[in-house]
Design a protein around this nucleic acid. Structure first.
Length: 803
RNA sequence: GCCAGAGUGUUGAAAUGGUAAACAAACUCGACUCAAAAUCGAGCGCUCGUAAGGGCUUGUGGGUUCAAGUCCCACCUCUGGCACCA
């Protein structure tokens, strides 16, 4: 037989990428006759470094899934675009003087070339770019809708301020008190900021998690972040005043154990009470001190609690009329609950520590039955029986929650840790916020016909030290007319964070060229929701939550057909450098995909990325191990020589191919790509000692391999005379009757230890197998002297003799 | 502290309660070669033994079971997330 030429990955990969491009193989249209599948990956930020191995891993995974779905007959949408606004581009522009638009264009060109060189089956006709005015027109439009509906508002507040990046940060962007991006310690700064009222959706964002198919850990993280907490709101009257302090507590059962109340330094009530506070100077000094401290210090681990009493203020316990002091302390947070807590030192660790430090009384109201007293080393926070609590004595603390709340004149309520989303950024390279500040009318939104509000061309992008956006320096742009009264007005100079464009991009993919609306509802009805969205865990509390919020808002306006944007969400682990550290330029451990594609080929790279380990785990890159993937493809290539027409495969091979088809199909669905590939390696190895293989079996194998390594499979597929792309081939079916072969290997155990293995027909019954087993030389000797007490037989699995 | 997840060869790892280490990589030996690479073949958890053949082994300690990496209890370590959230 004629030997095939060597596997020339460069030639093959170039050839097929050209064909896919020319024939627009992966471009799709709505087709009501076909069921759709919408697979989504997080669109990349086009940085100057080009794509990295992390992109390759997630894009390959979703590419495998999408390619399989196509072969199963789905109309598959697998789109790509660029999340192009953002700081690194702006910083690069500042450094080099090249306009961000140009930088972005260069970077996206690189990304596009790289992604194409790996053979992803993206629909390139739907490519989008968040920094394109045709796109951000609609980001601005959605903002206006939010504004119209009272969900976007301006607020003077202490914000997280990164002194290096010179910008405000959302709470989610502050990690351990540091800027997520550059690691600089975040400061507090008072500034007017645009806010989005995501908290209004907190309950739905929490509850609707029940209806989506996200990985459990993703749901848990979102739930923790939203931080739903049920409890009671209770008012404490201030003595000799008409003012009240409202507290939130999850433990109304401990009301009789309150010995003081604490206000957050930010709580407005503190200022209102100032005239009655005898030591106001001291208190004022304390508050200023706390506010000036960076958040990191205030919340540092194990930090000593500080506080100061508001002398002259007494408060009355609504359940028993007792009077006690009021404190201001830094361990109470202004932004959570009501910014005030009732302190029950006997049954709360923090209150306990504070009470010990300031020598405040500790009153026990729940008893385990024994003595957990004031001298105890810690608070008793478990449940138990009520004591010292008037009419509630003797009852279990958990059953009296709502009863005692009512008794105290309070009400049961729910609070969330989630805060409103700080939406302003003081930067150039983002979507301008489409409002003006009119001298007469105040804040006025632009009219829809005036969108997009384009970024002005400038020469300098430096953020200002005053905390204003660089846009503020462009007076020609800033000074404008009020759309309402025509009078003098100034444009808003803050821009949106880059979470804005990514909060709705998956909708634009359904209708990327639409000039009249962000996406046509009929098209959205066909394509959405996204069936499967894969992305990084680091976006769970940011992008994923933000976009769910925007989507729900659009749903409420009946602009999108579904309540949730993403039906299923999974995530991948990082690809680490060979030293086990995160790949980064400064560490010098970056592996460049271009190099790998050039030297070993896109198909080898794809195989290795899928084979290297479990998809959801972080994994260390190994330049050694990747050769195994290349060798596998060489082997597959050479197997062509053994294909024989009019040949029937052995029973062994028929079983093997059926098993492999089943395994690969199931493993792709569950994202066990590594075992799917090992299964195909086993198949290829299984053919090693066969001189011939049927064309049918070989091509079935090529079909199931093709989602992983499309180029080589297209080539082989075409070599066997197929005119149409393997993309259009049917996913092979397996037959359960062909999976169990007649002969099986059955281990034989003596007392649970394997002592031998026998080859038997799978349809034999227990007696027949026992006979064969006992005549086996490895088993025989064990049963010589001791009688068999018991036999355990599991069909097609095992036989175990107890002696 | 709280919430997830994970601890298996030299390495990446695999294993519906049923032969632990599949599949790969590295390594050793052999074939081919003047030689090297590539390729092919053999070996490759620890341990006793010349061998035949035993014994041990999935973080630690207990338990359930004919049978446990897998289930249950306690503990240790690591990774990720949250963290004074009342």
């Amino acid at each position: 037989m004629k030997k095939t030429q060597n596997y020339d990955h460069k030639k093959i990969e170039k050839k097929w990428q050209k064909i896919w491009d020319k024939e627009k193989t992966f471009s799709v249209k709505e087709d009501s006759k076909k069921k759709k599948f919408y697979g989504l990956i997080e669109f990349p930020y086009p940085s100057g470094d080009g794509i990295h191995m992390g992109h390759v891993r997630t894009d390959t995974a979703m590419d495998v899934i999408c390619r399989k779905k196509r072969m199963e007959g789905y109309n598959v949408l697998y789109p790509i675009g660029w999340d192009a606004f953002g700081l690194p581009t702006e910083n690069y522009a500042i450094k080099t003087g090249i306009h961000p638009t140009v930088v972005t264009k260069n970077n996206t060109n690189t990304f596009r070339r790289q992604l194409k060189s790996i053979g992803f089956s993206f629909d390139w006709l739907r490519e989008i770019n968040t920094s394109d005015p045709n796109y951000y027109k609609w980001t601005q439009w959605i903002f206006l809708k939010l504004y119209e509906n009272g969900l976007a508002y301006k607020k003077k507040m202490l914000i997280n301020w990164c002194p290096k990046d010179k910008t405000g940060l959302a709470n989610e962007e502050v990690i351990n008190g540091c800027c997520e991006r550059c690691g600089t310690v975040v400061e507090k700064k008072e500034k007017e900021q645009w806010m989005l009222a995501i908290t209004k959706y907190a309950d739905r964002l929490e509850k609707d998690l029940d209806d989506v198919n996200y990985l459990e850990k993703i749901k848990i993280q979102q739930r923790n972040w939203i931080g739903k907490s049920e409890g009671a709101e209770i008012e404490f009257k201030i003595k000799n005043s008409d003012k009240k302090i409202k507290v939130f507590t999850t433990r109304p059962d401990t009301l009789f154990g309150v010995t003081y109340v604490v206000l957050a330094p930010e709580n407005e009530l503190v200022q209102q009470l100032s005239s009655q506070v005898k030591n106001w100077q001291e208190v004022d000094k304390y508050i200023k001190e706390v506010k000036g401290r960076p958040e990191m210090e205030r919340t540092a681990d194990g930090k000593d609690k500080t506080g100061i009493e508001l002398k002259g203020i007494k408060i009355i316990n609504p359940v028993n009329g007792e009077e006690f002091p009021v404190f201001v302390a830094d361990y109470v947070l202004g932004g959570y609950g009501t910014g005030a807590v009732m302190a029950v030192p006997a049954h709360d660790d923090r209150d306990f520590a504070f009470a010990k430090k300031y020598n405040l009384p500790i009153k026990e109201v729940i008893s385990l039955g024994g003595e957990a007293s004031k001298s105890a080393e810690q608070a008793y926070i478990e449940s138990g029986v009520m004591i010292n609590s008037g009419k509630f004595n003797g009852r279990n603390n958990e059953e009296i929650m709502s009863e005692i709340t009512k008794f105290a004149g309070g009400k049961m309520t729910t609070t969330y840790k989630l805060r409103d989303w700080i939406f302003s950024r003081q930067h150039y390279w983002g979507e301008p916020i489409p409002v003006v500040h009119c001298e007469k009318c105040g804040i006025v939104a632009l009219k829809e016909k005036d969108l997009p509000l384009k970024l002005p061309l400038v020469k300098k992008y430096q953020p200002t030290d005053t905390g204003e956006s660089p846009l503020a320096l462009i007076s020609k742009w800033v000074n404008t007319k009020c759309p309402k009264c025509g009078g003098k007005a100034k444009r808003e100079t803050d821009t949106m964070p880059n979470w804005a464009g990514s909060s709705w991009y998956y909708l634009r993919y359904a209708d990327p060229k639409n000039k009249k609306e962000f996406a046509n509802i009929e098209k959205l009805k066909y394509w959405t929701p996204v069936d499967w969205y894969n992305g990084g865990m680091e976006h769970t509390t940011l992008h994923l939550l933000y976009s769910r919020f925007w989507h729900k808002f659009l749903f409420d306006l009946k602009l999108v057909p579904t309540n949730e944007p993403y039906q299923k969400r999974t995530s991948q682990g990082f690809v680490l450098g060979e030293d086990g550290e995160k790949m980064s330029k400064s560490r010098g451990n970056v592996i460049n995909p271009d190099e790998i594609v050039k030297n070993l080929g896109a198909d080898s790279l794809r195989t290795y990325e899928m084979f290297m380990g479990p998809f959801d785990q972080s994994i260390t890159w190994s330049s050694d191990n990747i050769v195994g993937s290349k060798r596998f493809l060489e082997k597959v290539w050479k197997l062509q020589d053994r294909v024989t027409d009019n040949f029937s495969d052995s029973e062994e091979i028929i079983t093997l191919i059926n098993k492999t088809i089943k395994k690969v199909g199931e493993d792709i669905e569950s994202m066990n790509f590594n075992t799917a590939i090992s299964g195909m390696m086993i198949f290829a190895n299984g053919l090693e000692n066969q001189e011939k293989i049927s064309r049918e079996t070989y091509l079935d194998f090529i079909k199931i391999l093709s989602p992983f390594t499309p180029h080589i499979c297209e080539e082989i597929w075409a070599k066997f005379g197929n005119k149409k792309s393997i993309t259009l081939a049917d996913w092979p079916k397996w037959e359960s009757s062909k999976i169990v072969s007649g002969k099986i290997k059955m281990p034989i155990q003596i007392n649970g230890k394997v002592r031998g293995v026998i080859d038997v027909n799978s349809d034999l019954n227990e007696d027949e197998i026992t006979k064969i087993a006992l005549s086996n030389k490895d088993i025989f000797k064990w049963t010589l002297e001791t009688p068999i007490k018991k036999t355990i037989f599991v069909k097609n699995k095992i036989i175990n003799f107890i002696i």
